[in-house]
Amino acid sequence: MSELQATPVRPAPGRATSGAEPVVVVDDVVHSYKGRRALDHVSFEVPAGSLHGFVGPNGAGKTTSLKIICTLLRPQYGVVKVFGQDVVEHQHSVRRRIGFMPDHFSSYRQMTVFEYLDFFAAAYGQPFKQRTTTIEEVLALTDMEGRRDDLISGLSRGMQQRVGLARVLVNDPDLLLLDEPASGLDPRARIELMEILKALKSMGKTIFISSHILSELAELCDSVTIIDRGRVKFSGKVSQLLARTGEHPMFRLTVGDDRPEWGDQLRALTGVVSVEQVDDRPEYRIEFDWTQTSTNDLLRSVIDLGIVVTGFAEDKRHLNEAFLDLTERGVR
């Protein structure tokens, strides 16, 4: 990308949205550092009540986007709205409804867990009695009741991440903005953190999570935005991202008694466009012309060949595959 000068601050025209009002609307945002564009006309939306993944390589613009959404940075061009409010004009109102968890723990390491949470609850203006109740609730939600009097410096990375999440929850935010929350966690701590996030989503909170752990985002998120080199490559439902695009539908057939002749016999079936065996396993990727045969007829024809079918489903991409297809190689 060639170096570009920062665009002067000016609003971009808003876009009309249909259906339920999204929690976050990023509209044509540009932001540059020393002539290099970190965000290049970025637009995406975060649906209400969703767990939205924000994915991209290092230097793609994820942290800059997060800082703008949580009012820590002003966009040089474009409009960002949270709960319908402009993050520049109504930053104090927006901050009351969001909770931001950065990718590193803060410097309050000589406080106990309770003292740390009490400090931030007081910063939100909660009276003492309310703070005590709030802290007990967030400790229970993050399964940290037994660590309330422990020094933060003595906690493991996973426990510190839980404390950070508990801190985000003390003001009962409607939107959680989490920057690499599972970074550096062991597998068990990562799984437990993801379970907490699922519980928060079930409580009606909208969660915006930036992460490189693509496989977990595929299981966790219902919508995703992929950003690369400051530009949005995809934004929408995970199911739409993983669906294979093309003229013909594709299905994956798993057989119980693989034989060398199955490939040729499958290719000879009506409507079949191509057949590819998957990594020498008893699996075949079948592309067929839906104008010549239906899914039911295709499966019936396969069974009529005498093939023992143990699996037959639409062939979807893995999130890793989709990510590599949409992003570019090279140092950023």
Rank of each mutant, 00 (worst) to 15 (best):
V255D: 01
P127T: 02
R147G: 00
R231A: 10
V302R: 01
V278L: 11
Q277T: 11
L242S: 08
R96L: 15
H318C: 08
G263V: 02
L72W: 07
G246S: 12
I68Y: 01
L193Q: 01
V308G: 12
T112G: 04
T293V: 15
L220A: 04
G306T: 12
S2T: 09
R74N: 11
V232G: 12
V170S: 08
F251H: 10
E145T: 15
Q130Y: 08
D27V: 06
R332K: 07
E328G: 04
P75L: 00
Q292Y: 03
I191W: 05
R37N: 09
L305H: 02
G311K: 05
V80T: 05
S18R: 13
A20V: 13
G61F: 15
L72Q: 05
D280V: 06
G49I: 03
Q126H: 12
M159H: 07
V25P: 06
V30A: 03
G154D: 10
T63N: 13
S301N: 11
I152F: 10
Q5R: 10
S274T: 13
R148I: 11
V26Y: 09
G59I: 07
P22L: 00
D258P: 03
G158F: 00
G14L: 11
G263I: 04
D222E: 14
R36L: 07
P47N: 06
V80A: 11
S215H: 13
L241C: 03
S183N: 12
G271W: 00
A322G: 07
G184K: 08
Y108H: 14
P11A: 09
P187T: 02
V94L: 11
L169C: 04
K198H: 12
V82E: 01
M101H: 08
L185W: 04
S156Y: 06
I98Q: 05
D280T: 12
L319M: 13
D280A: 08
G35D: 10
G61D: 07
D118R: 05
V302W: 00
G306K: 05
G184V: 08
G158V: 01
G49L: 08
E287T: 15
P11Q: 07
M144R: 03
V224F: 07
L200A: 03
V26M: 12
T206Q: 01
S183G: 06
L185E: 05
I307M: 02
T291F: 05
I191R: 11
R10W: 00
L4K: 10
L200V: 04
L175Y: 09
L176H: 03
L324G: 02
F83Q: 04
P187K: 02
P22C: 01
A6Q: 07
L176R: 04
L39A: 06
L269S: 12
P102M: 02
A12Q: 02
G61N: 10
L200P: 00
N171V: 01
R97C: 03
T112C: 09
G164Q: 01
L326S: 03
G56P: 14
S239G: 11
W290I: 15
D143I: 04
